[in-house]
């Protein structure tokens, strides 16, 4: 994927904690430039940012102490696109059920943390994903997306619960495509960025 000037797209991965190395590896296989993001200055020049799985409370704390939280909000206003998996989806959502904890609110979605229960209730199962097809989904102490706003498109469900959704700026998954070796959802995100860039031209 290329930028307007012909250079490769660069997608950052928030590297404060969690499965960032897995996301970087997946992006590299998709032939885009990648960058680990630990400091506000690391956001400069990115077309997309992945917020990985990990512990959302730990990542939130580290976002605040590094000042990355403010830098990310600024970048969103300039058109940065986001992909959040599990903890990342929680942080991008507009409301965490039963908590007053901060989240970015970049996508109209109410999430419930650890909604399936503790680790013994983590599981792997195949689901049908809109525009993508059958996908092996790994849930680890996963959240559930309970409701979404009108401008949010639902891409996959587990019964009543939403597991993959998107709006203009964000793609959120309650599961971990970065652990499967299946690149289709990462490619979907990359296409989302480049489509948007082309539309702007």
């Amino acid at each position: 994927m290329l930028n307007e000037d012909g250079s490769l797209l660069t997608i950052g991965v928030l590297a404060l904690q969690g499965s960032f190395a897995e996301h970087i590896a997946a992006l590299k296989k998709c032939k885009v430039n990648t960058r680990e993001v630990r400091l506000p200055s690391d956001i400069e020049g990115l077309s997309g940012l992945i917020i990985p799985g990990g512990e959302s409370t730990a990542i939130r704390t580290l976002l605040q102490v590094s000042g990355l939280d403010k830098a990310i909000i600024k970048a969103k206003d300039k058109g940065l696109k986001f992909f959040g998996t599990c903890a990342g989806a929680i942080l991008l959502s507009s409301k965490i059920e039963g908590e007053s904890n901060y989240s970015f609110g970049f996508i109209g979605a109410v999430v419930s943390r650890n909604a399936y229960g503790r680790q013994l209730y983590s599981f792997e199962k195949e689901f049908d994903i809109k525009n993508i097809g059958k996908f092996n989904v790994i849930f680890i102490r996963a959240p559930k997306i309970l409701y979404v706003g009108k401008d949010v498109e639902i891409l996959a469900r587990d019964g009543r619960d939403i597991i993959l959704a998107e709006n203009d700026s964000c793609l959120i998954a309650t599961f971990h495509p970065e652990l499967t070796g299946d690149l289709r959802i990462h490619k979907y995100f990359i296409n989302k960025i480049s489509k948007n860039k082309n539309a702007k031209k």
């Binding site: 969690g18 960032f20 799985g53 990990g54 512990e55 983590s122 790994i138 102490r141 971990h176 652990l179």
Partner: peptide
């Protein structure tokens, strides 16, 4: 196994952490 995959996965989610 599937169980091992989700258990290895939880360890992966703890990476970079204390």
């Amino acid at each position: 196994t599937k169980r091992m995959k989700v258990n290895y996965g939880l360890a992966q989610m703890l990476k970079g952490g204390v």
